[in-house]
Write a protein that binds this DNA or RNA. Structure first.
Lengths: 344, 344
DNA sequence: GTGCTCGCTGTTATCGCAATCACTCAGGAC
DNA sequence: GTCCTGAGTGATTGCGATAACAGCGAGCAC
């Protein structure tokens, strides 16, 4: 056991300790060291103590590659995501990472240059080739559904924010309920109807919010204006807001996210329409700055962190072999600030 | 070579193909398969074609754990970061991930519950235990320096946004230059001096911006007001903005980030002080929404994506064995919008 | 014909760990 | 005393790949 290994000549940096080194120092076999680390109760306390002392002395760390090779489990989960500079995805990722950390998992990310089936498949493959134990897909886009229909068998996958007919478990904020809440809030203030500035087509969030908004208007027998379509950016909110500002009949707008709402607010103000006196605006997300918009934005808070945690839990279940297509819905919350008011 | 392995009974899912299976199908040895994948030029074209066909037919994927075990390289790099819901860190992470993807690296993240030496060390350890090839630390805080002074030997580490006396290569936006530019811009508009709302203490970005701002004022022989200290949030900007609004001598404020600037804008407006007629405000970051603040915010753009790419490149160099303590500074850019104007 | 190089391929050993099975030994049951 | 049991430990094997070296023809110089 004292063969000279490459890199062991005195001049070079000593290679990291391996299990055998610990075993030798503790006067036991490697197997016992392994047991101390993985099933301590199977080792007599005195032996265990000796081994642990040796571990500390040598600063021994198990080699994860070797462990993965023999156990088939890596303690790493993968996250496939689109643009992590956006507030929602970034927060979800953060939630996942925190939950993972608490369970001693590490998170690898594969971001996508574009949202379509091919890239999603490639993202999953990239992660799979690194032996992740499971994958969470954060790509609330219809193309994700395509990618999720052709999964490598045996790989646990969970989706965040996806539609209802996916072949995998899903954790999501209830967009429909959030949009309905926002719309009802506006109607309750006396507005005749509510306009909607939606997110881009084919995003699950967009369609969920459109559906929730529309259903309330229809249930109340209100006119349903044609939704306007933005791209989530403040810029698009501003451009479309200018159009909205010209329509004097518009008194209430439900905007599909806070950043677009910010653009709308500015367009309305520039057009001389006061918020909320002339027009009420509701956003979606509750980004940390929403309370400092002008005026402070009434919006629908999404608990992204909770979604991330739920997704992680679903994935843990799947990894543990629990079958079923669980669906965890997180309730959004309407936060009323000053951008909404009674209709004239 | 046709031993029955666990999981090979007909009823069960077939286990994934391994190199030996490919070799068998192609009528070569496993070594040849390995060569086709890692050094194709060493294999005769016909043989290579046969092997590749077998790879495709079996949908063979190399087992990364086995490969890591023998090569010692994983193709994974780790990123240690604090709060990835903040715009800056999120963008940097995104830049790193994109650069990594282009070079076939995967990124694992270890986020920190708190910014201090102990957590940073733990984050690095967590990543190291997964055999990452190197680590990028995105924690522009003085405590990071502590953590970076006691690194495991042999692990390539690069820092993002760190101070100047770190024992590792650093990629960063030149905070000092950016702050100087912002301050000079305000002075050039005729303001007698410039107030500063800084970020929290012990953040490298905070001190860099304070230093740049102070140096310009001193060079120009202007009075240097005591900096006010925020915590990066719009909320703190608002609270401190209320204090600033009361001081009629304040005509120009350099705010250490856009979100705080947003709070300042609101506080000034509520106090009846017009921007930019009464007070000019400059931010820092150029978040995507800055152009839609009210008024559109003059700010200093940080190219986070570029910083991420540079950091990745530095890390690649380190992994390749290039020594030295490279320092890559990315130049910030002043973006003039409507929140700054000539002094009365 | 001998000996050499060179291009291609195979054999063997090894990476560091855990699963399996075998072993030892103490303590009871009978 | 014999047998069993079970807790604690060790020897061996194998996970799936690559490194190092060996072998083997073909081609060429002489």
């Amino acid at each position: 056991m004292t063969k000279v290994r490459p890199g062991e000549s005195p001049a070079e940096r000593p290679r990291a300790a391996v299990m055998e080194d610990v075993a030798e120092l503790a006067g036991v076999s490697a197997m016992t060291v392994s047991r101390v680390l993985n099933a301590p109760e199977k080792v007599r306390p005195e032996t265990r103590a000796r081994v642990l002392a040796a571990v500390r002395e040598l600063d021994y760390r198990p080699n994860s590659a070797a462990r993965v090779l023999v156990t088939g489990r890596s303690g790493v989960l993968g996250v496939v995501c689109f643009d992590t500079t956006l507030y929602g995805p970034a927060s979800t990722l953060f939630g996942i990472e925190q939950a993972a950390r608490d369970s001693d998992y590490l998170v690898s990310i594969a971001s996508l240059p574009a949202l379509n089936r091919s890239w999603i498949t490639r993202g999953i493959d990239r992660l799979r080739s690194q032996s992740v134990d499971g994958v969470i897909v954060v790509a609330p886009h219809e193309s994700a559904a395509e990618g999720l229909r052709h999964l490598p068998p045996g790989l646990p996958v969970v989706d965040v924010g996806g539609g209802s007919d996916l072949p995998v478990p899903v954790a999501a904020v209830d967009q429909y309920a959030g949009a309905a809440r926002a719309t009802r809030h506006l109607l309750s203030l006396g507005h005749r109807t509510v306009w909607h500035l939606s997110g881009p087509p084919n995003w699950i969030d967009s369609s969920g919010r459109v559906a929730g908004w529309r259903s309330v208007l229809e249930a109340e027998g209100r006119e349903v204006p044609e939704p306007l379509v933005g791209d989530w950016t403040a810029h698009s909110g501003y451009e479309i807001g200018k159009r909205l500002a010209r329509e004097s009949e518009v008194t209430a707008v439900f905007v599909a996210n806070d950043h677009m709402a910010m653009g709308v607010l500015r367009a309305l103000r520039e057009a001389g329409r006061r918020v909320p006196e002339d027009v009420s605006v509701v956003g979606f997300d509750d980004v940390p700055e929403a309370a400092y918009f002008w005026p402070p934005l009434t919006t629908v808070r999404q608990n992204f962190g909770e979604v991330g945690r739920q997704a992680f839990q679903l994935l843990l279940d799947r990894i543990a072999g629990v079958e079923g297509e669980g669906r965890r819905m997180v309730e959004p919350e309407l936060v009323v600030r000053e951008s909404t008011g009674v209709s004239r």
